Simulated assay, not measured.
Amino acid sequence: MKGLYYQQNATALEDMFFLQEMDNVSPPSDYHVKLQVKACALSPINTKLVSEVMLEKESVPVGREVAGVIMEVGSKVSFFQQDDDVVGILPLDSQESGLSEVLWIHEHNLVLKPEKISWVEAAGAVRDGLSAYTALHFLAHLGPGKSVLIMDGASPFGALAVQLSQHTGAMVIATAYNHEDKQYLEKLKPSLARVLDLSKSKVDLAEACLEETGGLGVDIVIDAGVILYKSENSITKSQPLPHKHDIITLLSVGSHWVTREENLQLDPPDSHSLFLKGATVSFLNNEIWNLSNAQQGKYLHILSDIYIKRQHLNVFWPQLDEPVPLYEAKVVMEMVQKNETRKKQVVQL
């Protein structure tokens, strides 16, 4: 039984990921279930976070977004039964790779998968769905009538954030990084308020958003990274990013800026502008729920609601590529880590 692992001290990307045979692991506790994995989604590894949290580990399991069938339950498991279809995210300190055919996972990391949702769709939506839900509801307090700007709206995360915003009754503006992304966003139903193609230099993000909102500004901004200094060129980034001053300019009074830029730096003039607008800045950390169990119930509620909305309300349709066989997992994971894929990559076991 093989699993994919990340080597922390690797000197080259080609040596960063490796497949390794795993021994049959015994159940860690009476609260664990034995899962037969049907699909596992791949997401980039935050190498900085992993190095800070897992200092003593040389290798870390890869593939944490899993969907499968429960084969066996521990004596104290109360949420699930044998043969239940489930989906969830392995904890950050998991010893097992989600690309294993069989693994043990604590019941508090899983929720039931509706029958009508495929294994690949279930695994492909769980992480980005959780991030979109966290950004819009938990951090930005999304509500009907709000105006929302979602950067890189055609990405796997952006697509789910757009869908959730539209479902809630918000006016959505999204940015695209190329013509294909723009076409995808323009075909969404209901139609977005506006799609801005940032690959065209003539597009002024702040001006376009202020025009769309009658000069009032945007209530919620979900970025995909920003340029911090004027000397920093967006060409050095993998995508054309806006400057942080553009984001601050287009914010409305009492607005929420949710950033995925973990190294965001605000100078005193920036802070003063945010102060005058009464705006808040929140950081979207994908691992916030796994780093603390203080709100485990809310975490499981969010996961469950993702699939309820997907089944009954036509929300949370993931941007999926063709399923990947297990023998191609290492090569595909290297592409994911280098941000060379636009759609969500899911390994079908």
Results as ranks from 00 to 15, higher is better:
P61H: 03
V69P: 02
G63N: 04
G63I: 04
P44F: 00
L42E: 05
R64Q: 07
K48N: 13
V66G: 03
C40F: 01
E52C: 11
S59F: 10
L42N: 09
L42F: 03
E58A: 09
V73G: 03
K48P: 06
N46D: 15
G63F: 11
A41P: 08
L49N: 05
V53D: 07
E56T: 15
V69A: 02
T47P: 01
V53I: 15
G68Q: 05
I45T: 12
M71D: 06
R64N: 05
K57M: 06
M71C: 08
M54D: 04
V50T: 15
I45Q: 04
G74E: 11
P44V: 09
T47D: 06
A41E: 13
R64F: 09
S51V: 02
I70K: 04
A41F: 09
M71P: 01
R64L: 15
E58G: 11
E65S: 11
V62Y: 11
K48M: 12
S78H: 14
V66W: 01
V77S: 07
A67F: 01
N46T: 00
V69H: 02
S43M: 10
E58M: 11
S78E: 10
N46R: 01
P61V: 09
G68Y: 07
K57E: 08
E52I: 11
A41D: 08
N46C: 05
V69F: 06
K48T: 15
S75P: 06
G63Y: 06
V60R: 03
S78P: 01
V62R: 04
L42D: 09
V53H: 10
E56F: 14
P61M: 10
S51A: 15
S75L: 15
E72Y: 03
V73Q: 02
V77T: 07
K57S: 12
V50F: 01
M71I: 07
M54L: 15
I70P: 00
G68H: 11
K76W: 03
L49K: 13
V66A: 03
S75W: 08
K76M: 12
S43K: 08
V69I: 15
P44K: 13
V60E: 01
I70H: 02
I70L: 06
C40R: 00
E65C: 02
M71A: 07
S51P: 05
M54I: 13
L49I: 12
S43P: 07
L55I: 14
T47Y: 02
K76D: 14
S75M: 14
C40K: 00
V73F: 02
S78V: 15
E58H: 09
L55P: 08
V53P: 05
I45L: 11
E58T: 14
V60I: 10
L42H: 05
M54T: 12
T47G: 11
V62G: 01
K48F: 06
R64G: 13
I45H: 00
V50C: 00
K48E: 13
S43Y: 08
K48A: 10
A67V: 08
G68R: 01
E72L: 05
V66E: 03
S78A: 13
K57T: 09
A41M: 08
V77A: 00
S59A: 10
V69G: 03
V62M: 12
G68C: 14
